[in-house]
Design a protein around this nucleic acid. Structure first.
Length: 100
DNA sequence: CCCTTGACCAAAC
DNA sequence: GGTTTGGCCAAGG
């Protein structure tokens, strides 16, 4: 429960034009449960305040989204992030890593 | 407290 | 290169 809140806070700190991964978030929170991160975002009711679309798989794959991958990609492109197929282009470049 | 459920991950097949 | 498998662990019923 409190993990989720931390996740929300972290995601909110992701700057424009950047994305992050479930793994990175877990690492930043010093936990190993990547899966819970996804659950947190899925179950979140603050979709308007939380840019969950900026959270992708560890390998750059877009991952899932409540409104579908299409919408997720659309939003990502809005943030100047290119997506081909289901993968982030220049993934390393746009990946935002939290300070440890 | 036991059981199920994941918007995951990495390795193996 | 897609699919399966096992592991991982919090959250909710």
């Amino acid at each position: 429960m409190l993990l989720k809140f931390k996740v929300y806070e972290l995601v909110k700190t992701v700057p424009y034009g950047k994305v992050t991964t479930y793994k990175e978030i877990a690492k930043a929170l010093n936990v190993k449960c990547y899966r819970v991160i996804g659950q947190a975002l899925k179950q979140n009711k603050d979709l308007i305040n939380i840019p969950c679309y900026k959270v992708v798989h560890a390998n750059g794959n877009v991952g899932g989204y409540v409104l579908g991958k299409k919408e997720k990609v659309k939003l990502l492109k809005k943030d100047n992030i290119e997506v081909v197929g289901d993968k982030i282009v220049n993934f390393e470049k746009v990946l935002f890593k939290f300070v440890k």
